[in-house]
Write a protein that binds this DNA or RNA. Structure first.
Length: 479
RNA sequence: GGCGCUAUCGUCCAGGGGUCUAGGACAGGGCCCUCUCAAGGCUCAGACACGGGUUCAAAUCCCGUUAGCGCUACCA
């Protein structure tokens, strides 16, 4: 039984890289009928906040990807501590009484020699170690890497293939800090082992950590999961995408607020570091689930092309295009779930709209020109209410020749129409144009301007049909 | 410094010894369609990091260089 996990730390909002990790794990598990576990890695009590947790949950909810089990790492603390002591008892770990180094860990000066352990600490006898501990001397528990063994750790990565690291190149990493709290490595492995996680898809930044993790799994007697490491997401400047450096633009909720459809956002991030190999780019979630294959995950980092300096058009162009694709192809019945909130926000919503086929028809007609949900608010006024602005370009169309007078005159034959439809309106308008000796285009573009206040939009005859006879006639007479 | 990982158009991805005068998508230019704007169709421009090998043949395999990234914490 496949079990995957997504383990975010609630130290900020859900960011795009986290969303992709979640998505890939979800696709992987759901394709195999497996279980998705959400584990909140909230052991960093200093940085973890409830606001962050809520924000992450909100982001995940928006994505509409579900999970089956949920845990909080902070509630599993004793398990981690017990594991550290079990390893100590087995001799797989030892106490190190040397105080934490105050050196800057970022200092990689040329003089720095590679560090593997504090001399003398791992050789101390159990009796001596126990005695010092009993005296109350602070210590850290470290994993005893079998450095005398010339071999090393090997595992097969789903993405990167065979991986190997010699024991001599590995340091005796910490398991339990001197304050009694487990390190990330320990906590994550104990939880993954205890929760019987079978497959782990995570960021490539953990590729070299995995050697340590394999050691922990084996020493603890857990089944070692299968790993797959994904390439990192980089900012336009080529540096690793981070909240600190790239700001709120990497937040998933930002995409939601910008008017993205979750399906399109998912489609977009699925294309970052993965491809179906057949050049298909537009995918529904179902198609993704069917086509996703961890072996097809790329090994190269990819740049997310957003523009942090542009408050309006910051979103990656391809994401915007994909959103348009989804906006257009999604069944309208499904789309209204995302459009209705826009109508509500704009203040146009009326209860009669609910289930009204005319509303569906309007949405269907105007959506083909939109890329973002927000455009329904920005450019949909004339279709959903009687108060709408008239754009400058539309005014120009109305001011052409004696367009206004002609349009007012056009209202009469249209009002007289018994069957008011796209075709009858077209016939009427063209006949009227001929009668008046003007080009039909003048009245066509003028009509759109009069009915919608816009110079651009759906076919004018479609607009008549959408607006309806009564209102169309009113609007023509009002020019 | 040590140990790894990676390197194809501006960006995201195909191609993984001959079918490559390197394919698709986004963005950009042009044309068509057309009542406008989109959409759609067609089209132009645009890349194998560099240097050595191996081979009849290298974008593809090997080595090196360079660059980027990761790990090298009692961060995660």
């Amino acid at each position: 039984m496949t079990r995957v996990r997504f383990a975010p730390s609630p130290t900020g909002f859900l960011h795009i890289g986290g969303a992709r990790t979640f998505l890939f794990n979800w696709l992987y598990a759901r394709k195999l009928g497996g279980t998705v576990v959400l584990r909140i890695d909230d052991t960093d009590t200093l940085r973890s906040t409830d606001a962050s947790l809520q924000s992450i949950l909100q982001g995940m909810e928006w994505l509409e990807l579900d999970w089956d089990e949920q845990y909080y790492q902070s509630k599993r603390l004793q398990l981690h501590i017990d594991a550290a002591h079990a390893l100590l008892k087995k001799g797989a770990a030892y106490r190190d009484f040397v105080p934490a180094s105050t050196d800057d860990p970022k200092d990689h000066s040329e003089t720095k020699v590679s560090w593997t352990c504090n001399p003398g600490e791992r050789e101390r006898s159990v009796e001596e170690s126990d005695r010092l501990a009993a005296e109350g001397k602070p210590f850290v528990i470290r994993f005893r890497v079998p450095r005398e063994d010339p071999k090393g750790v090997a595992f097969k990565d789903m993405v990167f293939g065979k991986q190997f690291r010699k024991y001599v190149d590995m340091e005796d990493f910490a398991l339990l800090r001197s304050d009694g709290n487990p390190t990330y490595h320990l906590a994550t492995c104990v939880d993954d082992g205890d929760l019987k996680i079978t497959d782990i898809l995570r960021g490539q930044d953990h590729l070299t950590n995995t050697f340590k993790h394999v050691l922990i799994f084996e020493a603890l007697g857990y089944e070692t999961p299968t790993f797959g490491h994904m390439p990192l997401l980089l900012g336009p400047d080529g540096s690793k995408l981070s909240k600190r450096k790239h700001g709120p633009i990497v937040s998933v909720t930002n995409y939601r607020d910008a008017g993205f459809l979750p399906q399109a956002f998912i489609n977009f991030i699925s294309l970052l570091g993965w491809s179906s190999k057949d050049n298909q780019e537009v995918f529904s979630l179902e198609e993704l689930r069917a086509k996703f294959n961890a072996a097809d995950i790329l090994r190269t980092n990819s740049i997310v092309q957003f523009d942090e300096n542009d408050a309006v058009n910051w979103a990656p162009p391809k994401a915007v295009w994909l959103n348009g694709q989804h906006l257009r192809s999604m069944p309208v019945e499904k789309l209204i779930k995302y459009v209705n909130p826009e109508l509500i926000k704009a203040g146009w919503w009326q209860d009669e709209f609910e289930g009204d086929p005319d509303i569906l028809k309007k949405i269907d007609a105007i959506r083909s020109r939109f890329n973002m949900l927000g455009e329904f608010q920005q450019r949909g006024a004339a279709y959903f209410c009687d108060e709408f602005p008239t754009e400058d370009k539309a005014v120009e169309n109305l001011d052409k020749d004696n367009a206004r007078e002609l349009l007012r005159g056009l209202a009469d034959p249209l009002e007289a129409l018994a069957d008011f439809s796209h075709d009858t309106v077209e016939a009427t308008l063209r006949a009227y144009a001929e009668e008046k000796g003007v080009k039909a285009g003048l009245l066509i573009n003028g009509s759109r301007a009069a009915l919608t206040g816009q110079s651009v939009g759906p076919s004018a005859f479609e607009v008549f049909d959408l607006i309806g006879q009564e209102k169309a006639v009113q609007r023509l007479r009002a020019v």
